[in-house]
């Protein structure tokens, strides 16, 4: 039955979210055309560039929020409003309903986040190629900037490019999982309240979001305090940035993974309860 639920969830979500992702691709393509056309050169370009950049950032952020918001609203509407009368009378378990939403939702948020990360990378690489003196691509290579320069991606950031990409993918996946579950657990907790369930869900969301931000900030700061304490060591300055980044990435990954697992377990516990559609 989970397979069937996944098929229907996929078809329903597939009516909206591909267009959001298509919009990201269109904006990126427009950005590529503008950058390669040289339209931003000169005085007018200097005026227009910050505005276009602002528009680009706001658009990407909106697409990311839109995807998450759509998935939260769909979770609520499909399971706990009128459509819930159909979903909860199907001969399936509440956990199968929950997992169908989680799996499909995770796919779309992950794809969305990947496109949002790749979009500026694509623009930067294109701008670099068009500059006549490409240095960014060279910077990413194992040799770095060459000609005796110590600067390469590995020496500055402490990761090989494939290793960094893998880490980024892991961080994105864990972040999507945690973000999606923050909304789902809030909606499920809202169902425990006798009145104003939707309002309660919004309230719970803000509480969880703030708690996540505070925990994440503390967990990122802690390894950097250790780094500052070790700053008297001889190689501390030279290796500061790689160690700093390594500390941030590791802390983020572990924190979001732990938060995600806790949220998932709470969701499972709440989703297993018999529903109350008043």
């Amino acid at each position: 039955m989970l397979g069937k639920l996944l098929k229907y969830e996929w078809n329903s979500v597939g009516r909206i979210l591909p267009y959001v992702n298509l919009a990201i691709l269109v904006i990126t393509a427009i950005g590529c055309v503008v950058l390669s056309s040289g339209a931003l050169n000169g005085a007018f370009g200097a005026f227009l560039t910050p505005l276009l950049f602002l528009f680009y950032i706001v658009s990407l952020t909106s697409f990311m929020l839109l995807t998450l918001l759509y998935l939260y609203v769909r979770f609520y509407r499909n399971l706990y409003s009128r459509e819930g009368y159909l979903m909860h009378t199907l001969p399936v378990t509440p956990l199968q309903l929950f997992h169908s939403k989680l799996i499909v939702g995770f796919f779309w948020t992950f794809l969305n986040d990947l496109l949002i990360i790749l979009s500026p990378v694509g623009l930067v690489v294109l701008a670099d190629k068009g500059s006549g003196n490409p240095s960014i691509l060279q910077f990413f290579s194992e040799d770095g900037l060459g000609q005796g320069s110590p600067f390469s991606f590995r020496t500055v950031f402490g990761y090989s490019l494939p290793g960094f990409i893998l880490l980024l993918l892991l961080l994105t996946a864990v972040g999507c999982f945690s973000a999606l579950l923050t909304g789902y657990v809030s909606i499920l907790l809202g169902q425990l309240v006798e009145k104003y369930k939707a309002a309660a869900a919004v309230g719970f969301y803000f509480v969880f979001y703030m708690a996540n931000q505070i925990i994440s900030s503390i967990s990122i700061l802690l390894p950097n305090f250790q780094l500052l304490a070790a700053s008297s060591e001889p190689d501390a300055v030279q290796n500061f940035l790689p160690r700093y980044l390594h500390g941030i990435f590791s802390a983020s990954l572990i924190t979001q993974l732990v938060i995600g697992i806790i949220l998932y377990l709470v969701c499972v516990l709440l989703a297993r309860r018999q529903v109350n559609l008043d």
């Binding site: 009378t89 309860r273 018999q274 529903v275 109350n276 559609l277």
Partner: peptide
């Protein structure tokens, strides 16, 4: 139909408590 949880007491359909089996037998 299994859309509300009872505060007290039980409901069964053909001897099955409300769940996947009962939902397969009840058309609501």
């Amino acid at each position: 139909a299994g859309l509300l949880a009872p505060t007290e007491g039980t409901v069964s359909v053909v001897g099955c408590p409300i769940g996947v089996k009962s939902k397969g037998m009840v058309s609501y």
